[in-house]
Design a protein around this nucleic acid. Structure first.
Lengths: 357, 357
DNA sequence: CCCGGATTTGAAATCGATTTCAAGTGGAAC
DNA sequence: GTTCCACTTGAAATCGATTTCAAATCCGGG
């Protein structure tokens, strides 16, 4: 391996000069040229480990995500990677598996490896602890989920707005018993999406679009908590279908649970859009799912990209006040929320039935 | 940050002794205890960068994969991660995007970061060049795809066998004009899967199961090369359907292209199992696809796990002869290959029609 | 021709761990 | 009591870069 000393010897200068050539120090052009030539000839590439040790800072940023198999996070990871590449940083992808211990371990590694900074989609809002990073001055940015009380920049999605828009859409499509399958209690994303759902229902109750059914609290009767995974979505959906007065639509607060819900519906012979289904976050290969699925679109790539940009500012030493960037969701209306079958009421449909029903 | 020197001072010993305590040197128990206590009190954690510099070897392994959004590779990555974790290595995931330049850049980083080793699913069989690693003594293992002429261990899938089994299955299900959509020419995986397909067809021709159609070479007429992506699968399938005598089944050589093919079939109103579809590699959320898809199952997790184990042996200094491990595929028969409709021939079906047709 | 200030340069310190080597310690054997 | 050996220990070198500091050089101005 050729070191800076080898290059120095070959160019007839000191190592210090070589270092200056590559780091923008003042060196006479003639000498600099000689150094560059020697470096090129020897195929010199600075040893990043030595650099990190000396500078007390590496050129790698850690990205901690809870589920590498969820396409939402892989897309986010791509955003981070693209942003990082622009400034010569590499990205280490760490899959925490929603496991608080694994997450802690990775944070420790980030410190021990002297990473330049970390981007964290926290495994737990209450237990994830970013304070050791802060204590050692390592920049961090929270993404998608904001851990409680952490003094870090954050890039989030407007979950409440998304939940609201989704639920309003279902109401407009004339569903009237709209269920909500949300994530774990305590996760910020679960709670916010649920809050949006409730807010939309409240509005509908207030303006008379929706009328309370006897005995049930319409804001809670159709709510189920699950685990953001396929299995949880299945269980919650099955539970909802078993109700005495089952819902006629469901707002599922994440893509994987939507997959589970769709499976259960299919097994039960209940098909959208008669039964409305709306997923928060796109399902992979959605093109194969029939009827096509109405979804709240998440800016996953931008989430990652923005977080990485923010992190880079901090790494560069920015002392700006902490900021939280909130990105908006969109709504992609497709066939799964075309509206329930007409009952005897004889009202016109808002939407033509899809060719395959 | 507490360093080894701080611990040494606190325990009243030299840094060398502290190092020995943590690296299994000979130290009197009494002293060792004092060191451990001091280390615990100060929250000492060895600086991995300094370790790497001194030992000339890091504790991170690089995993280069061509497409992080393909669930096959994420599953493989999990296998690598689990194996690595058992020995305290961390995994850096590098997404090369099938781009030979990105790949080269990442290999350079692996060297400059003094990684312990790399596992590579090569972006290109002909252009991927692992020789700089070998030159610097960095262990490497090829996974899934074997780059040409590289002197490295490899963990591969028995692609030819898988392609053969798949095609035989389609023949047994009484499809007779079986197409093959394979990957890019020159990729080992494409070629091997295609070879399996051809070998099965040849056997069928030999024993009379299949009779050559006038004018066409049955071994090539229905073969299409594509790019292992959804778009490529679409184009190839569309091309096949536009033939004068279109096929009655297709063996698609990777999961993403199968998604594309299914989309096109659906748009054309052609539905399995009348038209047989078999995918090499599972499709994510396959549960939602109807009819369910027959697939060649790939041991993606085991692929990663095995590669990581192999790499660890090399890192530990094993001088064994280079080995290539080939893992077998399985065949999961589902509804999409239930057999074509009976024509006027009045032959009995081998398989009951699926309830939904 | 000499001086002051700016610029360029290299020697040496530094980052934090590991490891070599020589010195120190203790115990057993004679 | 002396000798020898095995075992512990710490001082110092080392990994490869960056950076400080002081010396060297160059320049124009007087």
């Amino acid at each position: 391996m050729t070191t800076i000393t080898d290059v120095a010897r070959a160019a007839g200068v000191s190592p210090a000069t070589v270092s200056r050539v590559f780091n923008g120090g003042r060196v006479t052009p003639e000498r600099a040229a000689r150094v560059r030539r020697a470096a090129a000839e020897l195929g010199f590439e600075p040893n990043r480990v030595a650099q990190s040790l000396r500078k007390q800072r590496g050129s790698v940023i850690g990205l901690l995500i809870p589920d590498i198999e969820n396409p939402f996070f892989t897309s986010l990871a791509r955003g981070v990677e693209d942003a990082a590449q622009q400034t010569g940083l590499s990205v280490v992808l760490c899959n925490t598996d929603e496991d608080i211990d694994k997450e802690r371990r990775y944070l420790g590694i980030a410190l021990a490896e002297q990473m330049a900074g970390v981007i964290v989609a926290a495994a737990s809002r209450t237990q994830t602890d970013l304070s050791p990073l802060a204590a050692r001055g390592m920049p961090a940015v929270a993404v998608d989920r904001r851990p409680r009380g952490a003094l870090v920049d954050a890039v989030l999605v407007d979950n409440q707005y998304g939940g609201e828009a989704a639920t309003e859409h279902l109401l407009r499509a004339r569903y009237r018993r709209i269920a909500c399958v949300t994530g774990p209690e305590g996760a910020s994303t679960s709670e916010e999406r649920l809050a949006g759902y409730r807010s939309a229902l409240r509005d509908a109750l207030a303006d008379g679009t929706l009328t309370p059914e006897d005995g049930d609290d319409p804001l809670t009767a159709y709510v189920r908590y699950a685990d953001f995974k396929v299995g949880g979505g299945r269980a919650a959906m099955a539970d909802l279908l078993a109700m005495e007065r089952p819902p006629d639509a469901v707002f599922v607060a994440n893509n994987l649970m939507a997959v589970g819900a769709l499976e259960v519906l299919r097994e039960a012979g209940v098909t959208p859009p008669e039964f409305g289904v709306l997923s928060f976050g796109g399902v992979p290969w959605a093109g194969l799912v029939r009827p096509s699925l109405t979804t709240v679109e998440l800016p996953s790539y931008e989430l990652g990209f923005t977080a990485a940009k923010l992190l880079q500012e901090r790494i560069a030493g920015s002392e700006k006040a902490l900021q939280t960037v909130v990105l908006r969701t969109g709504l992609s209306v497709r066939d799964s929320t075309g509206g329930p079958h007409d009952d005897a009421e004889g009202q016109g449909r808002l939407r033509a039935p899809s060719p395959l029903g």
